[in-house]
Simulated scan of single mutants.
Amino acid sequence: MTTHPTSTAGSTAADRPHGRRRVVMWRDYWLAPSETFIRETTTALTRWEPVLVGRRQFDTTLMTADVAPYSDRFAGRLASRLPAGPRARRGWRDAVADPRVGLVHAHFGQDGLSALPWARAAGKPLIVSIYGMDVTSLPWRRGADGRRFRAGLAELFDYASALVPVSQFLADRTVELGADPAKVRLIYPALGLDHRPAPAGDAVGIVFVGRLVEKKGVPDLLAAVARLPEPLRSVPVTVVGYGPLRDELERQAADLDLRVTFAGRRSSAEVAEILREHAVFCGPSQRAANGDAEGLGMVFVEASNAGLPVVTYRHGGVPEVVADGETGLTVPEGDVAALSNALARVLADPEWGRRLGRAGQQRVNHLFDRHRHAAHLEALYDEVAAPLGATR
């Protein structure tokens, strides 16, 4: 396997520079506000012109698709779950078969399955970016759903010219599922990084950002804070995000008598500012009961970019972002006592924490630079693309 380590919301192909070749960027749903990494991949390209294709267009979106036949309103959501009609099928067929299109790039394995029949029908190469649950949990669903998805992945892996996991952890999972190792190309994702200096010495408290679901480990974070000695136990904790565990977490924080603010869902800009107001980021991600794991953890990149030291479990792809003892501290997964001790070390020595944060900022600015990402990705496009004008 080969390792390679700001845009306008609602933009369309007409707003982007025209290149000599075109690549169909396939995402079933364009584009969730959390998927800034797909926006950055799309807008970082310089030699290839992206054409955005999918099933449904979100009302609140980072980018507007060129071809997405279904809206985000009730009727559109319902229609998108039914077999596609002639108009939708014609739109997908024509977008992919366009002689100027050299390949299809699908984001997520399940989206690769949506794009596969159109790439195959047009005789176009297909590459698929792998982000996490597509190889950690979906293949292991119980019953017929899991069997169908595994069978689909086998077909997808066979046809695809390249599979692009965003971490070595996901590369290994992809090969374990039967992918040809020669097709697996690790390219770290592009992120629109803020190059402002790390925060000064007035940042305080612990911050978490993410969905309030089992995989994110927020109960362990609260339990770890409760184990801190005073006065560290009284530091403020901010939990940014939403999800089904919020009520349970609020009860846990109250029972433990912790100073926790549940900030709910926030915009990307608000999250960036909240991060910079805190002294340490703690995200104890862990494997969920359904097998879901942190493929890389974009939020760890964002926290390091904001200049925060990161305290986390050694889990999934997270250690590829957080260098233990250099940019933060990683401890064995599920060890709440060790997590608490790591938090105590960083909180008790703010200057050391700031040094860790500055080192983390330098690390992610190198690994996840959008220009570096685009250079590797466009080189892959050049390698696998169909000849100019090819179609069926």
Rank of each mutant, 00 (worst) to 15 (best):
A13R: 15
D134V: 02
V213F: 02
E294A: 10
M25Y: 12
V346P: 11
A84S: 13
A32D: 15
L52I: 05
T6P: 00
D172Y: 01
L343K: 15
L126F: 09
R77I: 13
A253H: 09
R89N: 13
H107L: 05
A203H: 08
L153G: 10
E294H: 11
M25E: 15
R246E: 15
A84H: 12
A263F: 04
Q286K: 15
T136L: 11
R39P: 04
A182P: 00
A122L: 06
D202H: 08
E176D: 07
V218I: 13
S7N: 11
L308W: 06
G334L: 12
A198C: 07
T238Y: 06
A119H: 02
Q362A: 15
L31I: 00
G152N: 11
G178K: 08
S137A: 14
P350L: 09
A272L: 08
R73D: 15
D180E: 10
T61H: 09
R142M: 12
H278G: 10
G102F: 10
A293E: 15
F281H: 03
Y313H: 04
Y70M: 10
S234G: 15
F262C: 00
G205V: 07
R100E: 15
P189L: 04
M298H: 06
G360H: 08
V175L: 09
V235K: 05
P17V: 11
A224L: 04
G357C: 09
P197L: 09
Y188D: 11
L116F: 11
S34V: 09
L177C: 08
S268P: 10
P117L: 02
R55T: 13
F300R: 02
A88Q: 05
M63R: 01
V104Q: 04
A379P: 02
M25L: 14
D145P: 00
A263K: 04
E248M: 13
G102L: 14
V280K: 05
A337R: 14
V96C: 10
A97M: 00
A390M: 08
G201A: 15
C282F: 03
R363K: 11
Y313K: 03
F169E: 01
S34H: 06
G152D: 08
W140P: 01
Y242W: 13
L163M: 13
R251F: 12
M63D: 06
R354T: 07
L367I: 09
Q252S: 12
A279V: 01
I187S: 03
G10L: 07
V51C: 04
S267E: 02
A154V: 14
M63T: 00
E333T: 14
V204E: 14
V204C: 05
W92F: 15
S304K: 11
V364P: 04
E250S: 07
A115R: 00
P244I: 12
V299H: 09
D257K: 13
L377K: 10
L221F: 08
